[in-house]
Simulated assay, not measured.
Amino acid sequence: MTENQEHKHDHEHKHRKQIVNRLARIEGHLRATKEMTAAGRDCSEILLQIAAVQKALDNAAKLLLKDHLESCVVKAIHNGNEEQVLSALNKALDNYIR
Protein backbone atom coordinates (compact mmCIF):
# COMPACT_ATOMS: atom_id res chain seq x y z
CA MET A 1 0.00 0.00 0.00
CA THR A 2 1.44 3.40 -0.96
CA GLU A 3 1.54 6.34 1.41
CA ASN A 4 -1.06 8.09 -0.73
CA GLN A 5 -3.46 5.16 -0.36
CA GLU A 6 -2.90 4.95 3.40
CA HIS A 7 -4.04 8.52 3.93
CA LYS A 8 -7.00 8.47 1.54
CA HIS A 9 -10.27 9.36 3.23
CA ASP A 10 -13.26 7.08 3.00
CA HIS A 11 -15.68 10.00 3.10
CA GLU A 12 -16.41 12.97 0.90
CA HIS A 13 -15.33 16.49 1.70
CA LYS A 14 -17.81 19.26 0.96
CA HIS A 15 -15.18 21.78 -0.20
CA ARG A 16 -12.69 19.47 -1.97
CA LYS A 17 -13.49 20.70 -5.49
CA GLN A 18 -13.22 24.35 -4.39
CA ILE A 19 -9.86 23.66 -2.76
CA VAL A 20 -8.52 21.90 -5.86
CA ASN A 21 -9.70 24.81 -8.03
CA ARG A 22 -8.08 27.36 -5.73
CA LEU A 23 -4.80 25.46 -5.75
CA ALA A 24 -4.86 25.31 -9.56
CA ARG A 25 -5.33 29.10 -9.72
CA ILE A 26 -2.54 29.58 -7.18
CA GLU A 27 -0.29 27.36 -9.27
CA GLY A 28 -0.93 29.54 -12.33
CA HIS A 29 -0.40 32.73 -10.33
CA LEU A 30 2.87 31.42 -8.92
CA ARG A 31 4.04 30.41 -12.40
CA ALA A 32 3.28 33.94 -13.67
CA THR A 33 5.18 35.40 -10.72
CA LYS A 34 8.16 33.21 -11.56
CA GLU A 35 8.03 34.42 -15.17
CA MET A 36 7.87 38.05 -13.98
CA THR A 37 10.99 37.43 -11.91
CA ALA A 38 12.84 35.76 -14.79
CA ALA A 39 11.90 38.68 -17.07
CA GLY A 40 13.44 41.16 -14.66
CA ARG A 41 10.24 42.93 -13.60
CA ASP A 42 10.28 45.46 -10.80
CA CYS A 43 10.97 43.93 -7.39
CA SER A 44 8.05 45.71 -5.73
CA GLU A 45 5.64 44.26 -8.33
CA ILE A 46 7.01 40.78 -7.71
CA LEU A 47 6.70 41.22 -3.94
CA LEU A 48 3.05 42.22 -4.38
CA GLN A 49 2.44 39.07 -6.42
CA ILE A 50 4.19 36.88 -3.83
CA ALA A 51 2.01 38.45 -1.12
CA ALA A 52 -1.08 37.68 -3.19
CA VAL A 53 0.01 34.05 -3.61
CA GLN A 54 0.64 33.74 0.14
CA LYS A 55 -2.80 35.17 0.94
CA ALA A 56 -4.42 32.81 -1.57
CA LEU A 57 -2.59 29.84 0.01
CA ASP A 58 -3.71 30.94 3.48
CA ASN A 59 -7.32 31.14 2.27
CA ALA A 60 -7.06 27.67 0.69
CA ALA A 61 -5.63 26.33 3.96
CA LYS A 62 -8.45 27.97 5.92
CA LEU A 63 -11.05 26.31 3.68
CA LEU A 64 -9.25 22.96 4.01
CA LEU A 65 -9.23 23.30 7.80
CA LYS A 66 -12.94 24.11 7.77
CA ASP A 67 -13.56 21.05 5.60
CA HIS A 68 -11.47 18.90 7.93
CA LEU A 69 -13.31 20.06 11.02
CA GLU A 70 -16.73 19.60 9.42
CA SER A 71 -16.02 16.11 8.10
CA CYS A 72 -12.97 14.31 9.53
CA VAL A 73 -13.16 15.55 13.10
CA VAL A 74 -16.93 15.10 13.33
CA LYS A 75 -16.66 11.58 11.87
CA ALA A 76 -13.81 10.74 14.27
CA ILE A 77 -15.90 11.80 17.25
CA HIS A 78 -18.78 9.61 16.05
CA ASN A 79 -16.39 6.67 15.55
CA GLY A 80 -14.52 7.12 18.83
CA ASN A 81 -11.08 7.82 17.36
CA GLU A 82 -10.93 11.54 18.03
CA GLU A 83 -7.55 11.31 19.80
CA GLN A 84 -5.84 10.06 16.63
CA VAL A 85 -7.48 12.69 14.39
CA LEU A 86 -6.84 15.52 16.84
CA SER A 87 -3.21 14.45 17.23
CA ALA A 88 -2.74 14.53 13.46
CA LEU A 89 -4.49 17.92 13.27
CA ASN A 90 -2.28 19.35 16.02
CA LYS A 91 0.84 18.12 14.24
CA ALA A 92 -0.32 19.70 10.97
CA LEU A 93 -1.17 22.99 12.71
CA ASP A 94 2.22 23.05 14.45
CA ASN A 95 3.91 22.73 11.07
CA TYR A 96 1.65 25.25 9.37
CA ILE A 97 1.59 27.96 12.04
CA ARG A 98 5.08 28.70 13.30
Score class of each variant (00 low, 15 high):
83 E>W: 07
54 Q>W: 01
65 L>N: 07
37 T>G: 02
35 E>K: 15
63 L>R: 05
35 E>L: 14
5 Q>K: 10
41 R>E: 11
19 I>G: 09
65 L>C: 05
53 V>S: 15
86 L>T: 07
26 I>K: 04
33 T>G: 08
19 I>H: 06
6 E>Q: 15
2 T>C: 05
85 V>L: 07
74 V>S: 13
67 D>Y: 04
24 A>F: 09
82 E>G: 12
90 N>T: 08
21 N>P: 06
58 D>R: 15
32 A>E: 15
92 A>N: 02
77 I>W: 04
77 I>H: 11
33 T>Y: 14
30 L>W: 04
26 I>F: 06
8 K>A: 06
31 R>P: 09
74 V>G: 08
27 E>G: 13
84 Q>A: 13
95 N>H: 08
1 M>T: 09
67 D>S: 09
39 A>V: 01
1 M>C: 08
96 Y>Q: 10
22 R>K: 10
9 H>P: 09
13 H>Q: 03
53 V>P: 09
2 T>I: 00
10 D>A: 07
33 T>D: 10
81 N>A: 00
89 L>F: 11
50 I>Y: 05
77 I>Y: 09
76 A>N: 12
63 L>N: 02
27 E>Q: 10
63 L>D: 05
42 D>P: 01
91 K>H: 11
23 L>A: 01
57 L>F: 14
56 A>C: 12
28 G>C: 01
29 H>F: 04
22 R>I: 00
33 T>S: 10
4 N>V: 09
47 L>P: 01
48 L>P: 00
80 G>R: 01
56 A>K: 13
56 A>Q: 11
33 T>K: 04
93 L>M: 13
80 G>L: 03
7 H>Q: 03
9 H>R: 15
40 G>K: 04
94 D>V: 03
61 A>L: 10
97 I>C: 13
62 K>C: 03
13 H>N: 07
27 E>T: 10
94 D>P: 00
16 R>H: 05
11 H>G: 02
8 K>M: 07
76 A>D: 10
40 G>E: 03
95 N>F: 03
9 H>V: 04
17 K>H: 07
68 H>V: 06
5 Q>F: 02
72 C>E: 08
91 K>F: 02
68 H>E: 04
27 E>M: 01
40 G>R: 05
19 I>M: 02
17 K>W: 03
36 M>L: 12
2 T>W: 03
11 H>F: 13
21 N>L: 08
64 L>H: 05
20 V>P: 00
97 I>W: 09
19 I>C: 05
19 I>Y: 05
96 Y>L: 13
3 E>N: 10
25 R>S: 13
4 N>P: 02
